[in-house]
Design a protein around this nucleic acid. Structure first.
Length: 466
RNA sequence: GGCGCGGUAGCCAAGUGGUAAGGCAGAGGUCUGCAAAACCUUUAUUCGGGGGUUCGAUUCCCCCCCGCGCCUCCA
């Protein structure tokens, strides 16, 4: 079954398949590396990761590009204040961003590249626009002339024929013909980085990097373009204008936008000061897998209210998933195959796929999984679940985890090895046999202090890392 | 003002024209040397408010109230 995604362009759910039937060419607007990304930013990247993994589950290959914006007003200002070049200033934030992605188990796009390494492509694109009359020079900068692109507004569904743009026209500090016109190339200013081009020295406008980079790596029409809702206007609208004006082709077939993460009911933003970085949350003792789970658990087109209670609930939910996996792997079951268990596994797989194909309805998909876990636990308790059912159940979990990727506990430095844990458990079992419960409990406490939880079951002792 | 998203149990959150998934928390119970573990059961006569359509609406239509976002840099 083909997945259906909500396309901002059409404002409808549409069946998706890559144009060439094989490889999905997608582009994601990456971060501006002027400081650490916050978890609101990461919601978008987790969404994009869930999308990637879902597409792959359909058997398609991925060619995914993400830019790193390493030249913009804030970067220049901050670098200047720090008396650094923009490269020196942005390098640590780029590194931190990539580390955070890895921490959240967000797969690296096939191409992830800074804007400043694509100046040549931007210049070429701007020249195409210059030659076709879509731009004009003013005050040393090059502007895109919106009047030459009648479809402007089609993504944000804004009708500009009225007076909407009128309110702010009069200042005219940029010498623009039309208030909606935007800079594709900004003229040089003293102390700012600049590149020489046929149309004068300067630096890229905000939007041009995405068009240039996407077309360079993915061709003139992408399958999917993703980003946060706040980028719909003006960023993506302008990307469409400058790209389609240059090529005469649709820039992207599907536009997918993720809603914002809220904190206390408000948008998480740096100007409000109500944001958290991943690092801060981890320092508070929460685990990255709980953050990933929380960000992924609500459908991407719904605003999600971030709370620390929610993080705790996410961590507990993950425990339930892991406990189920552990039970499957460590319990002894009678020989044979229970048809009802097999039927439930198949039903869960179908429900899971249907939910993900329904515009990535992760909440519904999780519902299917937890319902399944409860049903199978009941079958196990009742003794009807058989050893032959284990394989299918574990495959179901793998199918789930190929998307959510939360079953594997985070690696912990200085943790006991499996061998050390098993040795201590052996000693405890000896103590229990000789009814030396004080010694047994001492060992359990010792392990607990190392984050190891023991469970005495009728099939013996099993353990897990907490 | 324009455009968009949302208001479902204590919290988070699915969903359908036919009588409310799931998670967390809470409450019972099972198992256990004990249990901090694990598992099971249970928790909304009701889906922001008011009209309307319908045999029947949380789900469709209209009006109202409330929250959030974008329209300026922003995931």
């Amino acid at each position: 079954m083909a997945p259906r995604f909500y396309n901002t362009l059409s404002q409808r759910l549409e069946e998706f398949a890559p144009a060439d039937g094989k490889t999905v060419r997608m582009y994601t607007c990456g971060p501006t590396v002027y400081s650490y990304a916050h978890i609101g930013n990461f919601r978008t990247f987790v969404f994009q990761d869930i999308l990637r993994r879902t597409l792959r589950a359909h058997g398609w290959a991925l060619n995914h590009v993400m830019n790193i914006t390493d030249v913009d007003d804030r970067i220049i200002q901050n670098a200047t204040e720090a008396r650094q070049t923009i490269q020196e200033y942005t390098a640590p934030f780029t590194k931190a961003f990539l580390e955070d992605l890895a921490t959240l188990r967000v797969e690296r796009p096939e191409t992830i590249s800074p804007a400043t390494e694509h100046i040549g492509e931007m210049v070429e694109l701007i020249e195409r626009l210059n030659e076709s009359g879509h731009t004009y020079k003013s005050d040393g900068s090059v502007y895109f002339r919106i009047a030459t692109f009648p479809e402007y507004g089609k993504l944000s569904h804004t009708n500009f024929s009225g007076n909407v743009a009128g309110a702010r026209i009069d200042t005219d500090k940029y010498e623009k013909e039309d208030a909606r016109d935007f800079a594709v190339w900004k003229g040089p200013k003293p102390g700012e980085p600049a590149w020489d081009t046929p149309f004068g020295a300067g630096r890229p406008g905000w939007h041009i990097e995405c068009s240039a980079m996407a077309m360079r790596h993915l061709g003139e029409t992408l399958d999917i373009h993703t980003g946060g809702v706040d980028l719909v206007f003006p960023h993506h609208e302008n990307e469409i204008a400058q790209s389609e004006a240059a090529t005469g082709k649709p820039f992207a077939r599907f536009w997918l936008h993720s809603e914002h993460l809220l904190v206390e009911g408000q948008k998480m933003s740096k100007s409000l000061g109500n944001f958290f970085t991943l690092r801060e949350i981890v320092e508070k003792g929460y685990t990255p897998d709980a953050v990933r789970y929380l960000l992924a658990s609500a459908p991407y087109r719904k605003q999600l209210n971030f709370t620390f209670d929610g993080l705790k609930a996410a961590a507990t939910s993950i425990e339930r998933l892991r406990n189920f996996e552990l039970r499957l792997k460590t319990s002894r079951f009678a020989e044979g195959l229970d048809p009802e268990a097999e039927a439930r596994t198949a039903a869960c797989a179908g429900a899971f796929d249907a939910a993900m194909d329904d515009d990535l309805n992760t909440a519904d998909a999780l519902g299917a999984i937890f319902e399944y876990i409860r049903d199978i636990n009941t079958l196990i308790d009742g003794g009807s679940f058989r050893s032959g059912n284990v394989k299918g159940a574990l495959e179901m979990l793998r199918k789930f985890d190929a998307i959510f990727d939360v079953l594997r506990p985070p690696a912990q430095e200085g943790a006991l090895t499996d061998e050390q844990v098993n040795a201590l458990i052996g000693q405890r079992n000896q103590a229990r046999k000789s009814r030396d419960f004080a010694r047994a409990d001492a060992i359990r406490h010792e392990l607990a202090a190392q984050g190891i939880v023991l469970e005495d079951t009728k099939d013996g002792v099993r353990w897990k890392r907490k």
